[in-house]
Amino acid sequence: MDFHCHLDLYPNARDVYAQAQERNEFTWLVTTSPRAFTATSRVLGGSDKVLITPGLHPEIVGARHAELDMLLEQIRQVKAVGEVGLDGSKRFQASYDVQRSVFIAVVAQCAALGGRVLSIHSRQAVKDVLAVLHDHPGYGTAVLHWFTGTTTELNAAIAQDCWFSIGPAAFNSAAGQALAKKLPRDRVVPESDGPFAQVDGASVMPWSAGHTAQMLGKVWDVTPADAMHILESNSRRLLGLIRAQG
C-alpha cells in the first residue's frame, strides 16, 4: 500500500497508474490543487485500488488560494483530503498567513461534514498544524506525511492521535532515521511521496512499502517481515477509517 503518492505527476503517469493497480492493494493519490484533482480524476479515473483526493499544497497556496471554494465543495464528495497543510520554511514564509487561513477553512469543513481522513504536510509548522486540528474537534483523522518535526512535536502529535506516513526517502539522513525510530508503531503506514521523493537519485515508486519495511526493521530492531506485518496491519486499519468516512 501507499498512503501518499503524487502518482499523476510521474512523467509516465498512465503507466505508473496501471502498475500501481497491479502491484498495490491500495494507493492514495494526493493532488496538489482542486483543478489538478478535477483533471486527474478525468484522465486517470479512480478505482477500488487507487483513491484520488482533492488538496491544495501549501507550497502553491500563494498562487492558487483562489481555488479554496472549489476545494471546499470537492471535500463534500470525498472520504479523504490531501495534500493539505502548512509549510513554515523560509521559502514559503510570504504565503504563510494565507496558508493558515486555507488550512483552517479545510479542517473546519471536514469537521462540519462529520470528519475526513487528511494527508497533511507540516514542514517547520507542526505546532500550528496541531493547533488548527485541536481547534476543530470532529475533523476526522490526521496522517502527518513525512514528519520532520522535533521529538517534542512528535510527542504532541502522538498525544493528538495523529498517524504518520513514511517512505524510503525519510531514511536518507541520520536525523530521519532517528525520528523514524520514535514513531508510534501502531500508527505508521507506508508512503512513497513519489515522484518528488528520491533515493539514490531515482524517484520512489508507489510499490516501495517493502523497502520502507526494511528500513523500519533496522531502526526498530525487528525483522523486515515483522516490520511489514506492522505496516500491513496499520494500513488495513487506516483504510478502514477512510472507507468509513462520508
Rank of each mutant, 00 (worst) to 15 (best):
4 H>M: 10
5 C>Q: 06
8 D>N: 14
9 L>A: 10
9 L>T: 11
10 Y>F: 14
11 P>K: 11
16 V>F: 09
17 Y>T: 03
20 A>R: 03
21 Q>M: 14
21 Q>C: 14
21 Q>Y: 02
23 R>L: 10
24 N>Q: 10
24 N>H: 01
25 E>N: 10
29 L>Q: 15
30 V>T: 08
32 T>M: 10
39 A>K: 10
40 T>M: 06
41 S>R: 05
45 G>I: 04
47 S>G: 13
53 T>M: 02
53 T>A: 01
54 P>D: 07
55 G>T: 02
57 H>W: 11
57 H>K: 04
60 I>G: 03
63 A>I: 09
66 A>F: 12
71 L>F: 01
74 Q>C: 05
77 Q>H: 12
77 Q>L: 11
79 K>E: 14
80 A>V: 05
81 V>M: 01
82 G>C: 03
82 G>W: 00
83 E>F: 00
84 V>K: 03
84 V>L: 06
85 G>M: 01
87 D>G: 07
89 S>T: 15
92 F>Q: 07
93 Q>N: 15
96 Y>T: 07
102 V>F: 12
106 V>I: 13
106 V>L: 01
107 V>N: 05
109 Q>M: 09
109 Q>P: 08
110 C>K: 00
111 A>D: 05
111 A>K: 08
112 A>R: 06
115 G>I: 03
115 G>E: 01
116 R>D: 00
125 A>W: 00
128 D>S: 12
129 V>Q: 02
129 V>R: 04
130 L>D: 06
131 A>P: 04
133 L>S: 08
133 L>F: 01
141 T>F: 00
144 L>V: 03
148 T>E: 07
148 T>G: 10
150 T>L: 09
150 T>C: 10
150 T>N: 08
151 T>N: 13
153 E>F: 07
155 N>W: 12
156 A>Y: 03
156 A>L: 11
160 Q>H: 12
163 W>R: 00
170 A>G: 11
172 N>D: 08
172 N>V: 12
174 A>M: 13
176 G>P: 05
176 G>W: 08
179 L>P: 07
179 L>I: 15
181 K>T: 04
185 R>Y: 04
188 V>G: 05
188 V>I: 14
189 V>H: 04
192 S>Q: 12
193 D>R: 11
194 G>Y: 00
195 P>D: 02
196 F>T: 14
197 A>P: 02
199 V>K: 09
200 D>W: 07
202 A>L: 12
202 A>E: 15
203 S>R: 06
207 W>I: 03
208 S>H: 07
211 H>G: 13
212 T>S: 15
215 M>L: 15
217 G>Y: 05
219 V>L: 08
225 A>I: 14
226 D>K: 14
227 A>F: 11
229 H>F: 13
229 H>R: 15
232 E>C: 11
233 S>Q: 14
233 S>N: 14
234 N>Y: 08
235 S>G: 14
235 S>T: 10
239 L>E: 07
239 L>W: 06
245 Q>T: 10
